[in-house]
Design a protein around this nucleic acid. Structure first.
Lengths: 216, 216
DNA sequence: GTTTTGAATTTTGTATACAATATGTAATTC
DNA sequence: GAATTACATATTGTATACAAAATTCAAAAC
């Protein structure tokens, strides 16, 4: 982590540890050694402890006073449930979007959607974010806050947009757009819930592929 | 904070700062001075910084690197929305409870409910917790995790059970129990959503009464 | 052979120290 | 008099130091 950087070191450590966990590099139940991270990143334990607190709040670590931090034992069911909850909130937003989004905003959605279809590799994740962010315009401040948190806990952009999932995502987005264009609030809700359920399955599969649930 | 205590100091500081904010003692936008807290509680800045990170994650503080932590500008609308979201998740759990809770668990709910009616003062908050905790038995692990977080962000037990609100809460609980007894999933969902909407209004009023939104 | 006990070691939690940035203030310029 | 710059002060972020608890491991007891 060298020198030169001041401020927000904890965020980088969060990203590092989260990455290692989601890559299946650190197994559920495994202890997170503060000194090991300190040595690996060449930082002191002060920002590390702040990072562990954040990851604890996110649910990726179990932090027990005096015992330390351990990689949380997240099951496949947890991941599926998490996306289900994500879908519950996003679905409500989609319903609002069907009622409140202006026609020009819907056109913009369509444009992003078409670019998503044509895109390749890395861009899918970015365009996916843009798509959902536009819908979330219809949500209240607090709702966007909650969505941000749910997104971080089990990062959505973390699983690759594999060929199979990209296609499925495109279909899901299509149904959402159609419902919103129809001004069909309930249809938009259902479409979003189904889309995120599928995303949950995809995320769980991606984690399984990385050996996330394999024993050490 | 004296001596003798080791471990988990940050949690106490979280409670202290949260209390001061929700008591209207620290106004939205106001800067949180680390040294001031350190002096007030006679602790070093290490656990304080961890506490501020937690409160930042909860949304009660805006934490900007190198600038410090500021009391978040939470509006009345934010509080209402927050409870609406709480209701969205709790409503889904109530629907599950109507389908999955055993008859003996429902009887237990009734018992708690009756004790709530007879109770006085402090006990209301405790029995209210027991009531909701029992319903949440029907929820998945991840759902309970999310509810815990939503509960902490704007602590439910923090506003007093004033005479007026106690009565309203009792009516709400009554409707929830009736629907669950009827095994009416959708009715339970609606009853829970309405109950938590009312709770949101009560919470916002309680905060207003404490001068939470008054300018410094 | 298994269990228990008791130091030696490791690791955590908190305090303190120091460096870098941000903030406030007064002098200077227009 | 208002705006701007330069300097002094305050506050944050990170590193280091030290004390308390937990873990480890080996010797002793059963």
């Amino acid at each position: 982590m060298s020198a030169g950087r001041r401020g927000g070191l904890a965020d980088e450590i969060v990203a590092y540890v989260r990455g290692r966990i989601l890559a299946g590099d650190m197994k559920p139940g495994e202890k997170v050694d503060q000194d090991a991270i300190a040595e690996a990143l060449d930082v002191s334990r002060s920002p590390i402890r702040e990072a562990l607190v954040i990851l604890g709040q996110e649910g990726l670590l179990d932090v027990t006073p005096r015992r330390g931090a351990f990689v949380a034992s997240i099951t496949r069911e947890d991941v599926i449930d998490h996306y289900e909850l994500f879908g519950l909130v996003s679905g409500r937003v989609a319903a609002l979007a069907a009622e409140r989004l202006s026609d020009s905003e819907i056109s913009e959605m369509r444009l992003i959607h078409e670019r998503f279809e044509a895109a390749t590799g890395e861009d899918h994740s970015k365009l996916n974010n843009e798509f959902h962010r536009l819908i979330n315009t219809a949500a209240s401040r607090r709702t966007r806050w909650l969505l941000r948190h749910l997104e971080r806990s089990i990062p959505a952009g973390f699983y690759a947009f594999t060929p199979g999932w990209t296609e499925q995502a495109h279909t899901g987005h299509d149904e959402i757009i159609e419902a919103i264009t129809r001004r069909d609030a309930d249809g938009a809700r259902r479409a979003m819930e189904e889309h995120l359920h599928a995303a949950g399955v995809a995320a769980a599969d991606a984690l399984a592929e990385r050996g996330f649930w394999e024993d050490a």
